[in-house]
Write a protein that binds this DNA or RNA. Structure first.
Lengths: 105, 105
DNA sequence: ACCGTACTACGACTTTCGTCGAACTACGAC
DNA sequence: GTCGTAGTTCGACGAAAGTCGTAGTACGGT
């Protein structure tokens, strides 16, 4: 059953590092994902995201976002539903997420 | 006199891209620089920054920040004084900078 | 003019990162 | 059970990024 190295592990709020968050957001694909998640309270399955990258690349980006503490991922059937960890990010870095999302250019 | 490729060129406010800003901020050395600049209205010379990297690396990071639109650099004698482009960043991405700087951890 | 200080330019090297395809696991439906 | 769908894992690859030392430019002081 794999190595369990990152079997849906999420950092606690106090384990989230600003450097990792910024790095996670500093990629066009991941930024697209975050923007999509920001418009959905229910969350979005990886495969339902409109991205022109392969499946494995999608997995890679979602994992990066998850390990950075930007998104929460929960299994649901055969899917993985991602949601933005808005409350945690707002608590740690008030304004950061809003500022990033304000850049609709 | 070099190639003038980036002779203190700064992007206009409307040329600043969020992706470049986030990438610029997503490095520990540059984050240190930004935090230092945030506490100084007069600006700081590259050499006056407390960093354990070489001179050329310092130049590299300051250029990255400048080209991303995060800092403004002006010559002053033999020094280059860097200042945070707080107004531009706040106008484009309100809250972003404050959020990043809130992370004093 | 000379010298020292402050920084930049240019390679070079190493590491990280984004990307992919192929093989694999997990779950639901039939 | 079989099949298909949804994601993951594992290398592998090329591109980008951080680091450095050396050499060079620019400016101020003497």
């Amino acid at each position: 059953m794999g190595d369990m190295d990152n079997a849906l592990e999420h950092p606690d709020r106090n384990e989230i590092r600003i450097e990792a968050v910024l790095h996670a957001l500093a990629d066009p694909v991941r930024l697209t994902i975050v923007r999509a998640l920001a418009t959905s309270d229910t969350g979005i399955a990886c495969g339902a995201l409109e991205l022109d990258v392969s499946k494995s690349t999608r997995t890679h980006h979602i994992r990066t976002l998850r390990q950075a503490g930007v998104v929460h991922v929960r299994p649901e059937g055969t899917s993985r539903i991602s949601t933005l960890r808005r409350d945690d990010l707002d608590a740690l870095y008030p304004g950061l997420l809003d500022g990033v999302l304000a850049a609709e250019r």
